[in-house]
Design a protein around this nucleic acid. Sequence first.
DNA 1: CTCTCCCT
Length: 827
Amino acid sequence: MAFDFASIDLPVKDIIPEVKNHLENEQTLIIKAPPGAGKSTLLPLALLEQSWLGNKKILMLEPRRLAAKSIAARMADLLGEEVGQTVGYRIRFETKVSSETKIEVLTEGILTRMLHNDNALENIGLIIFDEFHERSLNADVALALSRESQQVLRPDLKLLIMSATLDMKHLSTMLNAKVVESEGRQYPVAIHHLEDTDPYLIPELTANAIIRAVKKHEGDVLAFLPGQGEIMRCEGILRNELPDFKIHPLFGQLPQGKQRAAILPNREGKRKVVLSTSIAETSLTIEGIKIVVDSGFGRHSEFDPQSALTRLKTHRISRDSADQRAGRAGRLSEGVCYRLWNPVTNSRLDEHRMPEIEQADLASLVLDMAEWGIRNPEDLTWLTPPPKGSVSQAKELLHSLDALEHGNITEHGKELHQLPTHPRIAHMLVYAEENDLLALATDLAALLEERDPLGKEHGTDINERIEALRRYRKEKGKGKRFAHIEKIANSYRKLFKIEAENNYVDAYETGILLAHAYPERIACARPGNNAQFQLSNGKIAFIGHKDDLAHEPWLAVASIDARDEMGKIFLASPLDPKDLAPMVKQKEVITWDYRDGELIASNDLRIGNIVLKSTPIHHPDESLRQQAICDAIKKDGERLLDFNKDVQQWQSRILSLRHWNPEQHWPDVSTASLLVDCEKWISPYINKVKNADDLKKLNLLEILQHSLDWEFQEKLEKLAPSKIKVPSGSNIKIQYDEKGNPPILAVRLQEVFGLEATPMINNGKNGVLMHLLSPGFKVVQITADLRSFWENTYFEVKKEMKRRYPKHSWPDDPTDAEAVRGVKRKK
DNA sequence: CTCTCCCT
């Protein structure tokens, strides 16, 4: 285990003494180091023989399997050893460690597993989080859990967080940790901002920028575009415009051979242009790039807790992503980067990429926590807490899979948690085990977890993929894609100790398995709507007209993009409705029909939102009826109820007081919060309501006034009156602002003759903003200080008014004159 | 009728 640091020249070497020093005394430390500093290989080796480590091990977390393996290999190489001796690695279904191993490189999800087996991580002395700036869900979970372990069980456990660009302040405050900063090894990159692109013109404008850049500069080009579609269009343009260049697309779905061709230096001696998705930002490195062209857009999936579906979104990238992309031009020598956005847009970019936890499916996380005995993930300390909506969706799903009961993990839930996969797939595997369908389920699990091995031209039937996988297995075929999937399927078979099956696939068996993994995605053809389906979660989805599955009456959907109006189905299987019998529920349903604006009550047989049979009910249960009305109000109350001007003023009066006098605790009567809690105030008034007309007729102002405590009602009239009496005798309505801005009193100038100063409200604490109007109700002056107006500006205004309204009275001393409503003739 | 990336 001899290792000579003197022979190595990497920037991170300079900070090693400082890091050692801090770790002597501190439990948690942050290292900020740009890529290329050498931190991932040198630091763990440098820390091996620290006395505080004793004979405990170092764990280092990596976001990707490939990185975990190659970093372990590099470290072993530096020690002159094989992987598995001093340095080993663990990724899912693959472990290379021995009793000698002191440094284990893991992918991030593995740590959570290890923590479950040994909460205290007894033989671990240090956990290193590499590439923490990527903020993957698993890294955030790993940090939260190891912090918990450090605080509760293992005060001697040390944590080292390494990151390239990150919100260091937030991180170091939250972890109460010092930051050590290292230089990078990076050549300067000259950055040029061009004009903003319209997202629809990305391929054309990127192509233009590339064509101009290759004329001005030497070297190969790497361009970042959001996705496959844009890459193909850009490629088409460049093939015509730059015939002497080698053009390489690069994205995840591309076969491995073509990916390699894009990454490796080309032999033909032609200059090269690589058109890539964000895959080249972190996962793949292309050597020899001197020019980066960045469209400024990327694509990512967003989880919608409402439907438990994800959707792909095209978004502007964050500044740290943009910097990382630009840095790709400066790895070997000086470079240049063209950005398709202007300096103003640049100043408005988000600083950091959004942490995955904010927009991910949290089912695994919530099950993990439940296994730890943590009922609410919010109870842990998070860098970014998991969003409430996603947490409650996850809980709901886990309850429906019988993994949780009243928030606690069940025996079935523990069984699911044991399996190294998403709870949905685990649930499917357990069902398969009980129904003798495991061989099929393991093939299916592997296919569901990985990228679709077949292209779009193959349609959406997942059974075609299973058959292709089985053919591959039987014929010992080639093809990297199926090799990868077969490896995972095989790992699952080993787990369950079963043999592979290579015979034909019963599509209905696939269907019922999928229906167990994705019960809310059971789909029933919509009568009369070709290739459209009603999903059990309420959503409508469509499939290509020419697709083999387009005419199936029932589908079990595996993969779907939520879209806005209608989801698009990517993978599914035919389904035999007879198999669904155990999932059919009888339910009395009362719903608000938004189209006709009335309540409908029926006794239904349903699978989620798919109605199999419906019998009308004439006298529905009163409490269900009321609940249905309240649900409708919650969803669409702003339209269903009569929020007229008077109601709005009442709301603004209270909201203003809420701002002005926080110590009085005025209730939040904004429309949104009223609707959320509508049961509390509207219930007594809706027992006769049957339809939209009845709702509209409710006197909302009266109802809301009654909902207020008597004390508040009185105070409201005193502190924020709805009207003010002016000298002319008119009662003028005050226009309050819901944000607490000064309320407006719009009144004709002549009606306030004799009023010396601005009227005050809220016990004399707040003045109104006077909009003084001409006799024709045009604003002639806005003032918060009436006295000053009379003394200064009035005479100017008077001149103008006299000219335009000569028949009216415009006295010289307005504070002493008689106020008038209409025309008062001059004497 | 636009499919990013990654992980137990």
